[in-house]
């Protein structure tokens, strides 16, 4: 029996978990959502998609972002399953 080994294609989409907090969660009306993006994707891609949602136009031009519990730039690539958080201005202390 001949079995053909199919080359594993790079997935064409990535799904990430997006978290919003405080004023941003209020503006967009949710705290957590899955977003599916065309690969390759970056945090900037996530922001672009968020801006197309109701209330998304109220996000600032350059919000603070985090990827998997660490601060990250908008150029940082995202992969399937990442947790991406969009952080309003921090007010601790």
């Amino acid at each position: 029996m001949v079995t053909s080994v199919m080359p594993v294609a790079a997935p064409s989409t990535v799904t990430v978990h997006v978290l919003l907090f405080a004023s941003y969660a209020e503006r967009l009306g949710f705290e957590r959502r899955e977003l599916t993006l065309s690969a390759p994707a970056s945090i900037g891609t996530v922001l672009d998609q968020l801006r197309r949602l109701p209330g998304g136009d109220q996000l600032p031009a350059k919000p603070l972002c985090a990827r998997n519990l660490a601060h990250a730039d908008r150029e940082e690539p995202v992969v399937h399953g990442d947790e991406i958080a969009i952080l309003p201005p921090l007010a601790g202390g």
Binding site: H71, L90, A91, G92, G93
Partner: peptide, 27 residues
């Protein structure tokens, strides 16, 4: 303390004497 204020994701919602409420934006 300076790094906590700069980096730790914590948010503050203030309740004012005039009855209004607001998220604090240090920036």
């Amino acid at each position: 303390i300076e790094e906590v204020k700069r980096r730790v994701p914590v948010w503050k919602r203030e309740f004012y004497a005039d009855g209004t409420v607001a998220w604090v934006d240090p920036t």
